[in-house]
Design a protein around this nucleic acid. Sequence first.
DNA 1: TTGTATGCGTTATCAT
DNA 2: ATGATAACGCATACAA
Lengths: 342, 342
Amino acid sequence: MKLGQVTIKDIARELNVSTSTVSRALKDYPGISDDTKKKVKDLAEKLHYRPNAVALSLRKSKSFTIGVIIPEVVHFFFSTVISGIEEIAYANGYNVILCQTNEKLQRELSSIETMLDNQIDGLLVSFSKETENFDHFTKLMEQNFPIVFFDRVPDIENTVNVTVNDFKGAYDATKHLIEQGYKNIIHLAGPKTLPISAKRKDGYKQALQDHQMILNPEWIIPCPIGTQEESYEITKTLFKSNENHPDAIFASNDIAAAGAMMAVKELGLKVPEDVGIVGFSNWQFSSMIDPPLSSVEQPGFEMGEKATAMLLEMIEKKKESNWEAKTIVLETELLVRKSSQK
Amino acid sequence: MKLGQVTIKDIARELNVSTSTVSRALKDYPGISDDTKKKVKDLAEKLHYRPNAVALSLRKSKSFTIGVIIPEVVHFFFSTVISGIEEIAYANGYNVILCQTNEKLQRELSSIETMLDNQIDGLLVSFSKETENFDHFTKLMEQNFPIVFFDRVPDIENTVNVTVNDFKGAYDATKHLIEQGYKNIIHLAGPKTLPISAKRKDGYKQALQDHQMILNPEWIIPCPIGTQEESYEITKTLFKSNENHPDAIFASNDIAAAGAMMAVKELGLKVPEDVGIVGFSNWQFSSMIDPPLSSVEQPGFEMGEKATAMLLEMIEKKKESNWEAKTIVLETELLVRKSSQK
DNA sequence: TTGTATGCGTTATCAT
DNA sequence: ATGATAACGCATACAA
């Protein structure tokens, strides 16, 4: 306790009343005379009294704090989600404690431990690329601890989730490329461990199938790392070695798309004339690159809001235990820019 | 207290010893028989005992939590700073509680209140654009509360700061444009309230002066909002209305630079042949746009590390009170890309 | 209408 | 070598 913070004790002493009277007066409890109530409140204000949240937390067994587990803040999409989370949390008197895992399982595990030590009331999770086993979450959920997964949601039972419709987003993007007249569309896929990668891949495949296009399995190319350099190298190699190179790319995210675009341009091919490109997530930079990149926009802010709203609901209804499993699916929007318009 | 968390009481009861014995055994205090020590530790492990950080916080008047006030997470630079902060904090057993102000003073004030309510041990601050009065910080510092400012540091006495050398960064960038043969270099300046804006402007002016270039005050153009759209509009208007338009732009940040580049290209001018452009901060996208944008790189991660290390030092030396004012200045690096090479 | 006592989980002080 | 007790700041059941 720094700052010589004033407590209800100080107020009680100065006013010659008991701490309970002060406590009650401050909370407008019934059975306190208007007179003392006023005195207490005035003095509290004068002394700039603020309740000690830690003491409250201990007393009430409730911290009004939620934990957020996120892979990386530098991901534009996640940073918008964070804003949505904070918005709803603060509006409801909750604090947010944030941990980046940097895509490391170890970090995910230790962050959760620390957060639990600090008595968080609930958890919002988008798990790491390394996370393939979900026991550390199910253990908590079995004890009725409120958890909401967002974006990267686990493929297990009885979870509460908020995602976007990755399948449809990918489907729309691929369909758009087809309709623009591209014939040989490859897919730069995301990390295998992530369900969102699988869903985007499925959307791509379905779109091809629905339009009687050949599905060449070799044209689904994994980009496990997810850096721009990776997709740059992959794309360059693929396009160089191939006399009949592909004429379109649907990438699992904008970073990969940007790397691919760079490779294609370096090979002297024109975007979108020779090669059409569509990305995913609509990063900040996507409209700034040349040509501007078409992309599937995900409503990050809204996802943060929705996930938080659900979590708070679970927290406050805690006693009614056992929430039903539920998944909210938000729709994406295909933003067509120059990179995919023949 | 959810999760039926086990406490030292549970351990004490089961072992028929007192809670104090358990507490001491767990901390390897002297005067506990090896026998009971082992018994306690074994049981603690078996029951997955974890100390309640909230109770500790109350008891010790110390939360092992630091607060971070930041304008916006979506700023690439700030998100790298956050990573640096987390790294050092976690390595030293501290938690991080993060608040975005969204550049609002009100949010800054309320965030600080909430954090203090939660008994944070210290504060890392990069203040909002609206913040012109620093009383809410000085009040705390007078009470010897540890605060370290980073990047956006206030122009007041007795503060502990970590910044980059904005003056030199701007100077180098401008000098580089001059050396490339550009003659009429304008400056898209940042928000007036921010000292970093002033320093960058000063660096720009000094470089012109040192190279016997005319300093046209009308070519220092404020971009108070800081969006890409803003600088796009400003640049377009300026270049259209001006027969003898400028031939180079030094922008206070990469977003503004990107907007300017877009405007210039739309007017049919070539970058870097007709117009050279340099930005500031080296955002993620800067190397991806066309042409790749030259930019002044700031060591964000290192800034986060340094600021946190200093804060923790202040926290742990608390009793020796009154830290000396101190400012660490990190150096920038000019990354020359195509946008500025004639 | 107000005060007293107790407890949230932990540790420090003072016994034994 | 261990236990009993008080305290951190607050809220509440029970007394008065």
